[in-house]
Amino acid sequence: MSDAKNGQPSDAAKSSLSEGLSPPQQAPGIMERADLLTGIVLLVLGVAVAWMSWEMPRLEVRRIHPATVPGLVPGLLGLTLAFCGAILALRSVRASADAAGWRVFGGIFVSPEAGRVGATLALALIYALVLVGTLPFWAATALFVFAFIVTFEYAFSASRSPLWRTVLTATVQAVIVGVTVTLVFQFGFLVRLP
């Protein structure tokens, strides 16, 4: 299959890249730094899991077979995870030596993409963790849908339409979604909504 290695980048290819199918076209070293950090996190997590498994009761009073203690499998998994984390971290250590690279790495957290992700995440968390359960479900939903649309169509959009139009259409969609979803689930699927 070596005949294919010299092709021209095409539009199709670029978008398939953005879907995360091939290595992302980023500054070199970013993935290594991410790997170094996750490797360390996984190492710590693995060791912690293994330790907790070791500390688990062996249930001797219940006269269970000693090879069937509850901590056996999680312990083995913890050790394997720690091993994989160590490999991941060690492999990336050399590539992450220079300080300048770390500044580039830090840069991805303040990029416009990070802003979009942060906004989406904030809206999603506020809706699921705060609004649902506090407000009636339809109101919580309508509020979330409205805020989401306005945020992305107005605040994050390059070609913004007039604010009044966004607000109007967003309100209409928000109310329709909130009421329809509530009605369908409450009376259609007999779900007792929070």
Binding site: T120, L123, A124, Y127, A128, V132, T141, F144, V145, F148, I149, F152, E153, S157, Q173, V177, V181, F185, V191, L193
Partner: peptide, 15 residues
């Protein structure tokens, strides 16, 4: 547009 679709999808994820 995704700005209109994704909030609805997320509502369905929650419920």
């Amino acid at each position: 547009p995704r700005e209109r679709l994704m909030p609805v999808v997320y509502v369905l994820c929650v419920i």
